[in-house]
Simulated scan of single mutants.
Amino acid sequence: MRIDPKEFHVHNLRYIIRSAAEDDAKTFSEVRLQIDGETEYLDREQGEAFIDESGFKKIIKEDTESINSLLLVAEVNGRIAGFSRCAGNALKRTSHKVEFGVCILQQYWGFGIGKNLLEASVHWADSNGIKKIALNVLETNDKAIRLYKKYGFEVEGVLKKDKILSDGNYYNTILMGRFND
């Protein structure tokens, strides 16, 4: 699906939250690769599960045409600074829910981009009959956990020793969900 673009001004940074377009595919691939190398909060290391331009074109097209998926970008000066995705599916038993994920280039952390992508996604879900938004978050990502709780997400479970990070230690993944009854 698509949403109307919305402009934000935070700490002298102007950005737009909008639906992804097929023209974004090449930049999407580059930005995702860069983000994967900037943080260990995500599942992938840089270069793993790489999606090229044609792969992103397919994802963007499918998400735009789907009634229960949403792919958003945060655009700064015509360049993607981050993105979020609510990935739904057509299976009858799980078509009421979406999986949420968000990625922001590190240089744009602290400008409310993640919060505004989340807020737009929650509004879209609530307005389109989505009953559950599910997400996974690394236990050490306290800022994200606080934000998710602020928007009504609750802890549903913990996957123990789910990730091994560069320090050689294992970390838990927290499963969270937001319900729209």
Rank of each mutant, 00 (worst) to 15 (best):
G157V: 08
I35E: 07
L138E: 05
E48G: 04
D43T: 12
E48H: 08
N12H: 15
L33Y: 15
L91N: 11
V137Q: 04
Q34C: 13
I145Y: 06
E156H: 03
L138W: 04
G177W: 00
D142R: 15
E75P: 00
G112V: 14
T94Q: 08
E75W: 05
V102C: 15
I67C: 13
E53F: 04
T27C: 09
K150F: 03
E22C: 15
E62Y: 13
N128Q: 11
A125S: 11
K97H: 11
D52V: 05
P5D: 00
Q106V: 10
R44I: 11
L117W: 03
A21F: 10
V73G: 03
V98K: 04
E62V: 15
K61L: 14
A125D: 03
S54T: 12
H123M: 06
L118W: 06
L70H: 01
H96V: 13
L138F: 06
Y41W: 10
L70Q: 00
I35C: 15
N128P: 04
V10T: 15
H96E: 07
Y148P: 02
E45A: 15
V98T: 06
K163E: 03
E156S: 02
K149V: 12
M1N: 07
R79Y: 05
N12A: 15
H9Y: 11
E38F: 08
N180V: 09
R79W: 08
R146W: 06
K160T: 09
A120P: 04
G110E: 08
A144Y: 05
N169L: 01
I16R: 01
V158R: 14
I59F: 08
V76Q: 00
L118A: 12
E45Y: 14
A120S: 09
S121P: 00
